[in-house]
Design a protein around this nucleic acid. Structure first.
Lengths: 221, 221
DNA sequence: ACTAAATGTGACTGGTCGGTCACATGACCG
DNA sequence: CGGTCATGTGACCGACCAGTCACATTTAGT
């Protein structure tokens, strides 16, 4: 936890420190991220930094908490569809919200990505939740779908959840590649670049594959 | 490229160095992996190391080459099915071969995983190939499937290739988790732990989802 | 204006790193 | 033997790191 001294700081200074720190931890693996760099780039003295934070890990944990909160706030901004709507509609929302977050907060997303892939000094329990959280969530998801009769009960729920989890973590990055969205567009445009015809089509394509598979369609519909 | 001096070394010493180095680069991000550690753990002098390799990067590149070769040799050991076999059968082979490699060479797989996720000093072109290679390969794969009539031509090939790529990179790890395979089993058992009934079922489950989707099946077959 | 508490500062410590180099040891050959 | 050429060695260099601390500066209360 940052010290009270830190929270007494003018808000602008707080933000500057946090922003620079997030950038540093987004661009470098935890071990390589450098406090010396952070203080250099914020223009504060090393000693001041250590009056705000106990140590490197303390800063890291604080950033993690902030990002969790920011992401939750972001997701609640476009609330999920009702529980009883078609699960595929729900899945579509999850994928889209995740991708939009990645695009509108690329630094935060990069940070989050490192949390689940790098070696990082979070409490063991937190790590487990962050890493398997998706799977647990999606297994429930599958049960809902089966109940609704829109998911075949013979499908292996674990494998499906594994797929969903991968998708939420990686689909945003894929879309950025594919739509050739430049960093400038991310910061300048007001609307989310995925809320376009092209973007919607990509979500449709994904959900379609998951729903109907790759096999030929003549037999159905 | 390692110097001739290195290749003149007794084979056992070469292997020891390589093994320790792979372990170091598998366990740590490139920046955090330490030459000092490597020479400490192999028991050679720092100076000797720098007679074998130009620098850290040189060692890294050499390891990368070795791993590529080893993986290719491994894959050719169980050759792919004929080109004209059902693409889903082919996909099954790809996923299975990848997962088996991950299980029988966990250190190499970890190393390879870092290549595609970490920041790593490979030549730009090599990196691009390593990272997008899967997608390009799988797009061809999709074309074959459409020709065979086992893949619906309306499916978005790019999105499907994206899915395949994710799967080959991550499915092995998922299976190890799910089957609760311990590290000992990996080193002691002679046969690949995935060539079991349970393992086969997991491959079936995956291919089934990709082929038929998650939707209810009454309408088909 | 004086004081005391809060905040700011950067040189410094002890450590690790990648990489070098002057020198020691060994192997082979006459 | 002596000589020479390949190989081995570890102290050392400069750079950077996380973290500390004695001191300087600012702020606020009186």
């Amino acid at each position: 936890m940052p010290s009270e001294t830190f929270f007494n700081l003018p808000e602008e200074k707080q933000r500057k420190i946090i922003d620079v720190a997030i950038e540093e931890f987004a661009e470098n693996p935890y071990e390589a991220a450098s406090i010396s760099q952070i203080v250099r780039r914020t223009g504060i003295a090393k000693g001041s930094f250590y009056q705000y934070f106990e140590d490197k890990r303390d800063l890291y944990l604080h950033l993690f908490d902030m990002i969790i909160q920011e992401k939750q706030a972001f997701l609640q901004q476009t609330p999920p569809p009702d529980e009883d709507v078609d699960v595929f509609e729900h899945l579509r929302w999850v994928a889209r919200a995740g991708a939009n977050f990645e695009l509108s907060h690329p630094k935060l997303a990069k940070f989050g990505y490192r949390v689940v892939t790098d070696d990082v000094p979070l409490p063991e329990e937190t790590l487990k939740i962050a890493r398997s959280g998706g799977r647990v969530f999606f297994e429930q998801f599958m049960r809902n779908g089966v109940e609704q009769g829109v998911i075949d009960p013979n499908v292996d729920a674990g494998v499906a959840a594994f797929l969903f989890d991968l998708i939420t973590v990686h689909y945003g990055k894929y879309m950025v590649d594919r739509l050739e969205i430049t960093p400038e567009e991310l910061t300048t445009s007001e609307r989310y670049p995925l809320d376009t015809t092209e973007g919607e089509e990509l979500f449709d394509a994904l959900v379609d594959i998951l729903q109907n598979g790759l096999g030929p369609r003549e037999a159905r519909k």
